[in-house]
Structures are given as structure tokens and as C-alpha cells.
Computed example of a mutant assay.
Amino acid sequence: MEIITKNDRNNNERTVCSLKEIEKRKIVEHNDLITSVAKMDKVPLKIFELAVSCIDTENLPKDNTIYLSKEELFTFFDVSDNGKHTRFKEAISKMQEQAFFEVREAKNKGFKFRRILPIPTVEWTDYDDKVMIRFNQDIMPYLIELKQNFTQYALSDLIDLNSKYSIILYKWFSMSYNQYEHYSAKGGRRAEQVEAYRNPSITVKELRILTDTTNEYKNFTDFSRWILNKPLAEINAHTSFNVTYDKIKKGRSIDSIVFHIEKKRKADDNSYKLEDTAYQEDKARKAETEDKLAIEAMKSKYTTLLLENMLLSPFEMQDTKIMAGLQVHVYPLYDELKALRGLNGVKDHLSYVSSKREEYSKRNVAKYLKKAIEQYLPTVKRQDLNHE
């Protein structure tokens, strides 16, 4: 690790990365880096993201080196007081003494772990506007070898995120939502798989690992406040996403979190404005898919059984969202039960669910029926296994 403050003779030959049109700058990273553990606080993480936005993957930086303007760097961090140079030096020192990524890559039957110091060398002078940043050669494959499994997001989305956890979650949401957009347009995944990218699930254990809070916020109320509620409030206020979440229980404890990601369409903000034509085409494509799923559901024998057991009303059958939800999330599970117990097994299950209809929430019939079959299927499988 080193901090160099002498002049580099070659500085004048290098191009300084300009952030004047910051809303147009993009960051591209490999998914393995996005899912890694960032062992650093907010400032080093934002410096790293800012530096990555200056990498041109079609014109790779010589010696893994890029140049930033001090003034634009201070503007990005909203530093305007007289002590900005001192604070900058302190941030760089802290980044090089404490900050590293713990990258986890799937290998064979487990994971391979690597600890990488992302930026070992930073150089600047007290009389020049340039700041030289040299990336660790070990981090470069995650920034330039991007033929597959990579994610792109807007630098402007990170400007107003003031929490390390907000940045980490935003990148994770971007990774998942980018896959949703890709497979929605290109195909190659089942409808329920595509929807899962827009509604990603993560166990609390994995979320603690991702946010480096395994030994912090042991009380779930505190965990929710600092790792979920506050970061999501920032993300919803300052980025291109609106995100909500549901807590999934296993027994009496919270086992996992399901996030629900929506992309904003904001005409007055070019940083994530969707073109009207593209937006309308995407909207029409989603509506067409929803209609097709709803028609399939209406033809299903399971819909008839739901009507017979008064778990679905004729009025609800006219709602394409409800019917599409049943087709995607519920009927595949009924197929599993049918394979194990036959159609009579499905009938018996729905008869039982109908007998408990006082617990039924009319606001979300698909969610209710999905929960009921998800709770029942493991019991059936366990009984069959014990019988064998």
C-alpha cells in the first residue's frame, strides 16, 4: 500500500476523467464483485465507484491508471469547506489502510474467497488539479472482462446515497433488475423466473454477509431500521428505483426478505428518464404477457376448482393481474401436488383451504393461495419420504 504525492512526469500526457456530464456516466462491474463483501465505509466505496466510472472498457487504461479532477471529485462528494484537502487525504489514507473487497466465487462444490485491495496507489500534488488512481491488477478482471454476468448502473444514482448499506443494496438491486429487463426482452427464462428477478429474495443470513453486519444489529428491529428501512428510503428518494420488501417467517423468526423493485419513469430527470417510445413498448409487452397468462389461467382446471371451493370469485376472474399471478406463482405448485397425490390431492387441499377461508385476505388471493400450498407441499413430500 502506498500514497505518492510527488509529480508524475507523464501526467500531462494523460486524459483527466471529466464528470461534468455526470448524469451520462455509467459504472460496469462483474456480478461477483457486486455480491462481494465491501470491507469499507461509505467514502472509500464512493471513491472506488467514481473511479470505476472513468474506465472505458473499449479503450482500457494504461497501467490500470485513470486520472480525476480534484475539483470535480470534491463536487461529487459535496465537499466545499476550507478543510477539503485535509479531508480528501484522510479519506484516501483510510481507504488504503482499511478498505478491501472479499470476493466470493462459486467453485466446484463450494466457494473460493479472495481479499483484494482495490486501489493501492493514489498520487496527487498540491499545485495541480489532477489525481492519479491506479487500480490493483487483481481487481481489473471484475471491471474489464465483462462478456457475461455483469451489471451496469448510473453514477448519478450514487451521488446522494449517504449510507454504505444504501450503495450496496442499490448495486444488488441493479444486478437483479438488469436481469429482469434482459430476460423480459430476450426470453430464455420462464415467466416465474423473470418475475423473481424483479422480486429478488435473500435470506437474512446472506443479507448480513452482503452488508458485512454478521456481528452487528443482532436485534432484528435494529437490523430492519439500519439495513432495510433507512437505505431503502434513500434509494427510493435519490435513485431510479422504488423498492419495498416483505419479511418471510420460518417458524417464529424472520428467515428471508423479498424485495419488490420498480423502475421510476421521471420526465424531469435525464439520469434515469425512459424514452416514451421504449416505455410504451415495454408497457405494451408486459400487458400482452399478462393477458396471455391470464387467458391460460382461465382455461386451467385449477381455476374451476377454486371457483367450486369459493376461493375465487367471478369478479376476480376478470382481473388479469390476479389471474396472471395464479398462473405464474400458484398453479405450478398445484402441478407438483398433483404429481404426488393426483388431482384428488389438489381437491382435498383446496377443500381444506376453503374451510379456513376466514383467514383469507381478499386483497391478494394469489399470495394467500401460494402461501397455503407452499406450507402444505413440504408436509406431503416428507410423508412420502417416510413412507418409502
Rank of each mutant, 00 (worst) to 15 (best):
3 I>W: 12
3 I>Y: 12
6 K>M: 01
8 D>G: 03
10 N>Y: 09
14 R>D: 08
15 T>H: 15
27 I>V: 14
35 T>V: 05
39 K>Q: 14
45 L>V: 07
45 L>M: 11
46 K>Q: 14
48 F>T: 07
50 L>N: 00
53 S>N: 07
59 N>I: 03
62 K>P: 01
68 L>N: 05
73 L>T: 15
79 V>C: 08
79 V>R: 14
87 R>M: 15
88 F>G: 04
96 Q>A: 02
102 E>F: 04
105 E>D: 08
118 P>A: 11
124 W>C: 01
131 V>S: 01
135 F>H: 08
137 Q>I: 10
151 T>W: 02
158 L>D: 00
165 Y>P: 05
176 S>W: 10
182 H>Y: 15
191 A>N: 06
198 R>G: 07
198 R>A: 14
199 N>Q: 02
201 S>R: 14
207 L>C: 10
214 T>V: 12
226 W>K: 11
231 P>C: 10
238 H>R: 03
242 N>S: 13
244 T>E: 12
261 I>L: 01
263 K>L: 10
273 K>Q: 04
274 L>E: 13
294 A>P: 04
296 E>C: 08
304 T>I: 13
304 T>S: 09
314 P>Q: 03
315 F>D: 13
317 M>C: 15
325 G>D: 11
333 L>W: 00
335 D>Q: 14
337 L>G: 03
339 A>M: 06
340 L>P: 04
340 L>T: 03
343 L>Y: 05
355 S>R: 12
357 R>E: 07
358 E>L: 06
360 Y>G: 07
365 V>D: 00
365 V>C: 00
368 Y>L: 07
370 K>D: 08
373 I>Y: 03
386 N>V: 09
387 H>D: 13
